[in-house]
């Protein structure tokens, strides 16, 4: 068990050293910090104008209290929603240049000469991208709240929002890995995956798309809809009300789909020559 764990850590370290040399990770974190800052500085979810002369004074007091209590969460959701758009471009490129490119450069063949199972190669490549991209998005989004918004936020909702971006990263990476092992081409992987997610995004914005598909394909949008304080372009995606259970089921389905896609990638990777 100890040897196996050391092995995985060593493989992960090898992947970081070989594929993500300076300044790749620093640039990745910087990009998401910029997205987070942009989201916080242009954040206009709430109507903050307040006038005198209303009959519903208690309603107005409740509204002001809601705005103050939820501002942090609202900025976090806006930042995460913007990160989703960046994921559509970034994840296919990372998989294309760190995995699909390996077929042409001979890196995959070199890796197979080491005592590393094919399963571990897939997990190493996919896991590193998921970890780097999702943690960079989480750092950028949390920084946007901590650095620009004074009030705190509810921990439970924050965990839900951040979990949704990790699940989406896992799903997007699994799709890109599948395209990579099928095509063995960086160009097809990058453009094929981008096109797939772009079409998925268009499908999600269509009113007739089943709600289950929407919550599965884009869990962060489902969470934004559930909390009701996301940016307007996200809130309008879902026609009906989303419950807490819907968001959890959506994330569960997305995880399941990602595992199935990674399993398929492993089978194809095992049966095809390099």
């Amino acid at each position: 068990m100890g040897k196996k764990r050391w092995n995985i850590r060593a493989i992960f370290q090898y992947e970081l050293d070989s594929s993500y040399r300076f300044p790749t990770i620093a640039v990745l974190v910087s990009v998401f910090l910029i997205v987070g800052a942009f989201s916080a500085l242009t954040h206009l979810v709430w109507d903050t104008e307040i006038y005198s002369g209303t009959d519903d004074i208690s309603g107005r007091v409740n509204y002001i209290t809601d705005v103050v209590l939820n501002m942090g969460l609202s900025v976090l959701i806006t930042s995460i929603s913007n990160c989703v758009l960046l994921f559509i471009v970034l994840i296919p490129l990372l998989i294309a240049f760190n995995f699909a490119q390996g077929y042409n450069s001979g890196l995959i063949r070199t890796l197979l000469t080491y005592p590393i199972e094919r399963k571990n190669i897939i997990l190493m490549k996919a896991g590193t991208v998921v970890f780097l991209v999702a943690s960079a998005a989480s750092i950028g989004s949390i920084a946007s709240v901590l650095l620009f918004v004074p009030a705190g936020t509810q921990l439970e909702s924050m965990v839900l929002v951040l979990s949704s971006i990790w699940v989406l990263a896992l799903l997007m990476v699994s799709v890109s890995v599948l395209v990579a092992v099928i095509s063995k081409s960086p160009l097809v992987t990058s453009f094929g995956s981008m096109a797939t997610w772009f079409l998925a995004f268009i499908a999600v914005t269509h009113p007739d798309t089943p709600q289950m598909l929407k919550t599965t394909l884009f869990p962060p949008f489902a969470v934004a809809e559930y909390t009701g304080i996301g940016p307007l372009w996200v809130i309008t995606i879902f026609g009906a009300e989303i419950t807490y259970a819907d968001t959890l089921v959506g994330m569960g389905m997305a995880c399941l789909l990602a595992i199935i896609l990674l399993g398929m990638s492993y089978i194809i990777f095992k049966r095809t020559g390099v």
Partner: peptide, 22 residues
């Protein structure tokens, strides 16, 4: 840019903006 406000009133006692920033 946090926000803008056009106060255009005759009877309103006050018009205001909620500002949340560090």
């Amino acid at each position: 840019h946090i926000t803008s406000l056009d106060v255009d009133s005759e009877d309103a006692l006050y018009t205001g903006l909620l500002v949340m920033t560090n």
